[in-house]
Amino acid sequence: MKFGIMVNEGPFNHQASDSAYQFAKAAIAKGHQVMRVFFYYDGVNNANRLSEPQSDDRNLVKLWGEMAKTHKVDLVVCVAAALRRGIKDELLAEGFHISGLGQLTEIGIAADRLLVFGD
């Protein structure tokens, strides 16, 4: 099955990004495809390359980036949500790119299922 994922909360503050990541990982392991992850609301903070969790903690920003690279998952950060939170190209971690809200609608149309993680 082809999945689209929407992440609506920032990392560490909320479990949404962890849950979305674990879901994506499990789906890929079962042979499904995760076409795109769309980061919206505070979810755009998942793309901040300056994020530096303690060394014994998971690094969500890095984990998403690695998944994007290994499994060709498109990590889209919403431009409107990102700009008002100061997330710009120069701050993006590897594997993420900034694009428009149309990418959310597009994945809603193209994927078999769109899953929303957040409050």
Binding site: R36, Q103, E106, G108, I109
Partner: peptide
């Protein structure tokens, strides 16, 4: 900036809420 894939959505109408 990584390359952005384009997914084919031509002619597909879905119900969004």
């Amino acid at each position: 900036m990584s390359e952005e894939p384009v997914f084919d959505t031509q002619g597909v109408v879905r119900k969004f809420m």
